[in-house]
Write a protein that binds this DNA or RNA. Structure first.
Lengths: 201, 201
DNA sequence: CCACATCTGTAGTGAACACTACATATCTGG
DNA sequence: CCAGATATGTAGTGTTCACTACAGATGTGG
């Protein structure tokens, strides 16, 4: 039996375009018309490939977190907890003000509050942010075991903290803060991690 | 000439209900039907009193920031910059997990990203957050003048930082973090302000 | 070249949305 | 008690939304 007419668009390229629309307008603010136009396809192709609007979002999130994961691996490869925090927050200051992308972070811009019928979208985004926090926590647990962080420090709290600052920076970026303002925030934020670090001498 | 039929509802009480709906569902997620039901009025009364949906949001924001302003005055009345930050962030940990209100902060939940036709809503919210940051900055400027903060410190950067952490905590609260998790974040965050404080002896 | 399977474009579908026309009700000033 | 003014409830308005029926196009296996 035949295998049917082949798809005429590249799913990953289309996803990149959809990602940008969700990033800029949020899940509810993005319309199917905007998405299909950006993706260069018609609605039936979108629904055949991704199921529905929420399925498209999840696919876009998968792609976003996959790309971000590569970067996060570099972040946690920093030698100390302090350097991990600095690399993460300074990197975020850069990335969230990169003119190549919409400002802020898709995991925040996607949707913090949603109307009836999309209540699980915020949870979906929160789950992705939690993955990032988990990665940080594991790294800080190791830092404590290595004596890099003080015995009195709480790696889970530190990870939550760095994650919270990241989110706050994302909101700032999306509402017009420039790169320098974000760098200042990152710079101050790192000092809290320093305060939990063992004295080097 | 007559003065017309008097309004049958109390505008402030109705605003409190509308505020809660915007808080829980965001600007775009809140529907006129939900708003009117919560306010106990019909659409024509809403439009006669507040103009349109965005006018209602602004009125709700006015009320929110007015109430919040009272609390902020208490926050900046703390004796030192460190205590200001602690009072602010610990207070936020309490307020944003208060079961009497929706979780998080209206100035964040209201809408970070919006669709076409509501693009100025995020700016409106950002402007209100900026007022808070201004109040913090002025307080930190004073703290530096008083020698409470180090000469090398940057009061504006500190204010931005505390504001960013507040926003991050708001997002965490709205996505299910409990009070203890927020307290941990606040506790770590305060240490960055401590690091900018003059040594007390 | 034919049966079948999958994709694509056109052109809609019903539902939900913000908002309002209009008739009626309730007030004040004279 | 009447005239003018404003509020209210009912019942819509047109628009936009996510989503899809359908017919034609384009591929594969036999």
């Amino acid at each position: 039996m035949g295998m049917g007419r082949p798809r005429e668009f590249d799913a990953e390229t289309a996803l990149d375009q959809a990602m940008e629309v969700f990033w800029r307008h949020g899940y509810e603010g993005a319309t199917i018309a905007q998405l299909t136009e950006a993706m260069g396809i018609n609605p039936p192709s979108l629904y055949a490939c991704f199921g529905n609007k929420e399925g498209l979002l999840k696919a876009a999130l998968d792609r976003y977190t996959k790309l971000r994961g590569v970067w996060m691996d570099e972040v946690v490869a920093a030698p100390t907890a302090r350097d991990v925090a600095e690399r993460m927050l300074m990197g975020i200051a850069e990335k969230q003000t990169d003119p190549a992308n919409p400002p802020g972070c898709l995991l925040v811009q996607g949707g913090i509050a949603c109307g009836s019928g999309s209540e699980n979208v915020p949870f979906e985004l929160a789950a992705r942010r939690a993955e990032n926090e988990d990665q940080l926590r594991e790294r800080f647990v190791r830092a404590k075991a290595e004596g890099d962080l003080k015995p009195s420090s709480d790696p889970a709290a530190l990870a939550r903290y760095v994650s919270a600052v990241s989110v706050g920076m994302g909101v700032m970026a999306s509402s017009g803060s420039d790169r320098e303002a974000l760098r200042q925030v990152a710079s101050v934020a790192v000092q809290a991690v320093e305060a939990q670090s063992s004295d080097r001498r």
